[in-house]
């Protein structure tokens, strides 16, 4: 069984003062991987500037637009069609010997292999005083601990938009206990890493047919690496394991590595950006 998705992404940028030159880079194309197959990618903008499809520093596809004429408003519209295979998150072999798994995770080779995803970044920096906020139970399997962490994160924070932004520190999120999917994911990743589990931030689309949190923006969740199993997706915002409804675009250490839109704009004054995302799924 598979689902055919059509995704529509619109970004509208308005600038207070005319822009002389601008470059935008979108990381919004669904990744082609074992469960996702790209069918079509189309991209336009209101100024009819040609775009480049390129690969960014982390190896994900990007759309790049460079404007060299003055402008004050621009609308970008992308639509993607893809096939997503049915994903059963519980479909894997058990981890095997628990003790050996933890031992392996403590080894140098493991730490080197997953170094970036064990690293603490500006957005995933666990304040000293919260060092023990979530400790693994080492008698339980890694997967079970992560399920607990997923639930814990879901319960610790409540979903609220417009209270946090891309610069909000983890300390503030832990203390104020609210945020959006980015914040849930950052907290989850941080605590997984604090317990020695490589975790990466995933950005993508969520098919919202079932009333999940994630509003009409891009969604974020996490993937963690469990020895003998591989990367497993957790969606702490919805206390779920990533499944058929999660369409992955890119991953990185934190939001900054996979922010959907990066822009360099030569102008003064403020700008306004609004995004809308629509995801439609159809059973094949």
């Amino acid at each position: 069984m598979a689902l055919e998705y059509s995704i529509n992404y619109v970004a509208n940028n308005r600038y207070e003062n005319p822009v002389k030159e601008a470059h935008w880079q979108f990381t919004i194309i669904p990744e082609a991987n074992s469960s996702q197959e790209q069918i079509t990618v189309s991209f336009q903008n209101s100024l009819h500037i040609p775009h480049d499809i390129s690969i960014n520093g982390y190896g994900f596809q990007t759309l790049r637009v460079s404007a060299r004429q003055p402008l004050s408003e621009v609308v970008f519209e992308a639509s993607f069609k893809l096939m997503k295979k049915e994903v059963n998150p519980f479909d894997f072999q058990p981890e095997g010997n628990i003790e050996q798994t933890y031992k392996k995770m403590g080894g140098l080779d493991f730490k080197i292999d997953f170094e970036p995803f064990l690293r603490c970044t500006r957005l995933t920096n666990l304040p000293m005083e919260y060092g023990d906020i979530f400790r693994f139970d080492f008698s339980k399997a890694v997967f079970d601990n992560l399920i607990d962490l997923n639930k814990w994160t879901y319960e610790h924070l409540y979903f609220k938009t417009n209270v946090t932004n891309v610069d909000t520190t983890l300390k503030e999120i832990i203390e104020k206990r609210h945020g959006v999917c980015q914040d849930f994911t950052h907290l989850f990743c941080t605590l997984a890493r604090a317990n020695g589990v490589p975790a990466r931030y995933v950005s993508g689309y969520l098919h919202q047919g079932n009333g999940y949190f994630g509003d009409s923006q891009m969604h974020a969740w996490a993937e963690t690496y469990i020895p003998n199993i591989g990367w497993v997706g957790f969606d702490p915002t919805n206390n779920l394991l990533a499944n058929t409804n999660h369409i992955k675009v890119a991953h990185g250490k934190d939001y900054n590595d996979c922010s959907p839109l990066k822009g360099v704009v030569y102008t003064v004054g403020t700008n306004e950006t609004s995004h809308t995302v629509k995801v439609k799924g159809e059973q094949q």
């Binding site: 470059h23 960014n56 520093g57 990007t62 790049r64 460079s66 990066k262 360099v264």
Partner: peptide, 17 residues
């Protein structure tokens, strides 16, 4: 600026790719 410091006006957007 698209890959590293976004406030850099010294670089070339897309150079790293």
């Amino acid at each position: 600026p698209l890959e590293f410091r976004p406030d850099s006006t010294l670089g070339v957007p897309g150079l790293f790719a």
